[in-house]
Design a protein around this nucleic acid. Sequence first.
RNA 1: GGGCGCGUAGCUCAGUUGGUUAGAGCGCAGCCCUGAUAAGGCUGAGGUCCCAAGUUCGAGUCUUGGCGCGCCCA
Length: 1159
Amino acid sequence: MFPPVDKDRGFPERELDVLRFWKERNVYQQTLDARDGAPPFVFFEGPPTANGMPHPGHCLTRSIKDLYPRYKTMRGYRCERKAGWDTHGLPVEVEVCKELGIHSKEEIENFGIEPFIQKCQASVWRYMNEWERLTERLGFWVDLKHAYVTYHQSFIESVWWSLKNLFDRGLLYKGHKIVWWWAQGGTALSSGEVGQGYREVADPSVFVKFPLLDKDGEPTDESLLVWTTTPWTLPSNQFVAVNSAIKYVTAIDEESGEKFVVAAELLGTLADKTKRKLRADTSPVDGAGLIGERYIPPFECYRDKYDTMAQLANGGSSYTSWRIVAADFVTTESGTGLVHIAPAFGEADFEVLEDERSQFNNDTEPLLLNAVGPDGKFTDEAPEFVRGRWVKDCDKDITRDLKSRGLLFHQEQYLHDYPFCWRAEEDPLIQYPRESWFIRTTSVKEAMIENNSKINWLPDHIRDGRFGKFLESNVDWALSRERFWGTPLPIWVCNKTGKKEAIGSYEELLDKPGVRGTEVWNNSKRANPNLVDDLRVHKPYIDAITYECSSTCDCKGTGRKERVSEVIDCWYDSGAMPFAQWGYRGEEGPSQARDRFSSQFPADFISEAIDQTRGWFYSQLAISTLLWGKQSSHESMLAKVVEKVTGKDNVVPYRETKTVPYPHPFKNCIVLGLMLGEDGQKMSKSKRNYREPNEIFDKYGADALRWYFFANQPPWTSIRYSEQSIKDSVPEFLLRLWNVYSFFTIYANIDGFSPVGSGNSSSAGTPRVPGAAPKRLLAQRSELDRWILSELNRTAAIVVERMDAYDNFAACGAITEFVDALSNWYVRRSRDRFWAADKQSAEKLDAYWTLYECLTTTAQLIAPFTPFLAESLWQNLVAKPLSGGKAGGAPESVHLCDYPTGDASAIDEQLSARMNLVRHISSLGRQARTSASLKVRQPLARVEVILADNTHQKWLEEHAAVIAEELNVKLVEFSDEPDKYVEHEVLPNFKLLGKKLGKLMPKIKPALASQSGAELLANLRDNGKVDLVIDGEAVQLLPEELEIRFKAKPGWTAANDKGVVVVLATEVTPELLAEGLARDLVRVIQDRRKETGCEFTDRIEVGVVTDSPELRAAVEMFSEYIAAETLAVRVTPAPIQGVEPVKVTIGDYSADVYIRVVK
RNA sequence: GGGCGCGUAGCUCAGUUGGUUAGAGCGCAGCCCUGAUAAGGCUGAGGUCCCAAGUUCGAGUCUUGGCGCGCCCA
């Protein structure tokens, strides 16, 4: 017996049963154990942050992350799934600050770093319960018990190991970064914060004269005309930039006689704007010709100190500052075509300086000129009249000073967007250089690009599109953060000489000579034994630890090493997870970590949404390429230097890691589209434009949500959250399949069908359920059975092919199509067999076996997609009836099965095509009935079927009974007189003829249409070609170059499509009418049976009382038929005593119907 | 302002190397079927394939330029 179908329970309730079952039987672990020793399929979990509530977007990523590992496990791989949590970073600090009611860094310091980071650590787990519950409820199988956590000591030490590796190879360095700086608050703002604060403001806009110098350094009578909207940056001017490709002229002011260099194109605009008479005094020259010219900066403050020559790397020498340099970003859209460069106050400006520096020898390169302090006030290096004042307040005085010295050419107001601090609206931000630690990613740029090119991105435009473009514009990774809650940067600096050293583990640190400061942690721990041990490698405890320098330090061992204050970008944490999740610290490190890492690297599969392009996707690729990619250009350079100095060949700098063939650290990556709210906007809590995941689970279930994600669109399209669509996936797919299962169970139990039996040995088409034994082999079964099993295996083959290509959307499409065929054709066409009286007839058993095989295999097919439904089916169809896992040898869970891959020998493409044709003809017949308003219950005499292609005609003729039954007609004829019903249309095959005929193409179709289809056909039949003359040119058309279509002639009740016409005989004779009435009556009686609560097997007696002679005649004529259909022992034309009749309308007639159960 | 992606039916989306009748599901309207039944089936209406120009015998598809939306970055 199969367990009866529980009609009262919904999908969500059954899912909870399944969850309990998985937990009790430890099924996830079993699936792993079952693949012990199997080839690995490596999955990396991109760590979410658990300090916010999970929303439907997270359900999407977690669903797709579950799908492929489940699939690959069933395909025979061992797929470990280690969960992970991202726990560091500013968002955590901000949450804690909110809680404490504080904002600035200073306030945090006043509160105390120690209690602050303790609060951060606790805050990280605030929503952990919700996350774990969601993960479980969604059916995401992942090892939460052994999750990696980025603040754990082993993780941090692993990160340290990697940073030490980079540092020792010269790939981690300290430099400057231009940031948006909130001077009053003393902190840098993230790009997100800056973006929030843009406002339109009017700033002064000044055109300033920079007098040119001649070759001897003497002033000339020409000036560079330079434009800026930030006069306060002028004292820190260092260069003037031109675009080498733009034309410049020397212009002369006809009134004053002054000469200016400006972009030729802007001369007119400038003259209009300033109402001066300017004319070109020279013919235009390329900007390239100006490069290297020197000028007098607008302020003298640095001039006496830095107006010096220095050695160039290539041998010559050059002035360090106040020269014209080339920059591509210079345009003629505004200004003068000459741009004032103050590298301290603009990212582009700073890059100019970096470029310049690279041309000088290291020790003589230009310094950064910066007359402004971090407080936003001018320093003592600035001109006296602005010293100590807030820079923005000085714009006017600076302009006035320039004017008084005759250097101001023009002045105006300029309206533009400028960022202000989002926490202090009146404070404008300034761009400002901060010291920062960088990873020299630019030195592995080519390697990253090569590595990227080997990754299988889905969709593939990510590779050369968003991600590829991003790599092309790579800049060094600004790693450090002047914050508190993060992985401390493991660099210790000599307090005497500034000599730096990287530390690769806590142990290494404690092993240093003369270590001090460990008591800070120890005391805290003693005072509070509950303190989480991992915190000892965090601020402030780690900062307290110092040690003695060794004799190899520049201080000769007289100084002490102290840690730098910064923590690192938490993106580095996430990008380090491929090795840090195991605590890997190199080949010399812990051996267990080494083994885990080597077997789980690189990943076969990862997936996140597209917003991770510059996040996790990049951080992983960059770190992996740095550690295991080809040698960086910087290292090669160092190697050459060392070689030069030492004279040794093949010198390679320190490098602890081996190279690993690309791609790594991941091979396949599904980039999910962003999930939008119900209104198409970004999902946000405040807008309430989505439902809580739990509501969805309770209402529709996790399978409904998962199927909606997998089957509704390719995963990379951005997906508009739609509760309706989730709801729809229930009847569209889940319920339809469930109904088939329910049908099977009801009748299998009535007939006592059991999959356990003394049946045949396994063979093609027999079930993949160990312990089940079918009666007959595939070849012995009916065509319908062979057809659906062919479809089943074909579907499995398609699904496997698509899933191996990470195309779940197409895979789901194939499954949906199969379930439709199973439900709407196989089951419907097999009903008679299921209802046959002889319980043991071979045909009946075949039907059960076939449907059983379809259902159990479908359960396996859908297992990775909708794991709950699959499990319910499996439990009820296999595990329970076969007492799974014990007697029968059938796996106790569907997830322990091997995935069906489709048995090629069971696939019959021809049968599939033929059955499709039958379905198509039936559909057309129904269409014809509809257009003639002849309902299917009314039998008709015959249909005529006309086929354009008679390949399958003979087969169809043998199967005419099926069509006759579907269409309720007495006779199906395949007409040999098509001309009677259809007219032909001969069309050109554009694809073939287009190449052959070219320009004549448009005339072919009308030429063919001008002749009768029948003639053309005859022509084609007799001569094997059609001859046409187009524009006097003879054209021969071969049969394959023509397409023959036909349609029903008017006057027939017919439907046509795709080379098939079905013509209906519409005449209704009295006999046919009577039969129709009988069928109507059957339906009425069946309804009545159901209403009165008859069991499927109850026998009844029926009375039909009517005034209509037609109806009486019909009852009389078809009483046997009616009795058989309705399980009636007799059908009489008289009332039945003691039974309330029901008044019914049958056709055009009314009647009283009595039914009574016969005991 | 730049990069990337998207724009097809009321909604959500498919649409092969360019080929002349642009599809599906939902929704809507009508009908049918009914012992799987709080299911199922059929039919219909509904399209300027965002706009414009170009390439081509032929463009939803390719090119260019707009417009709109989204994401990422300035």
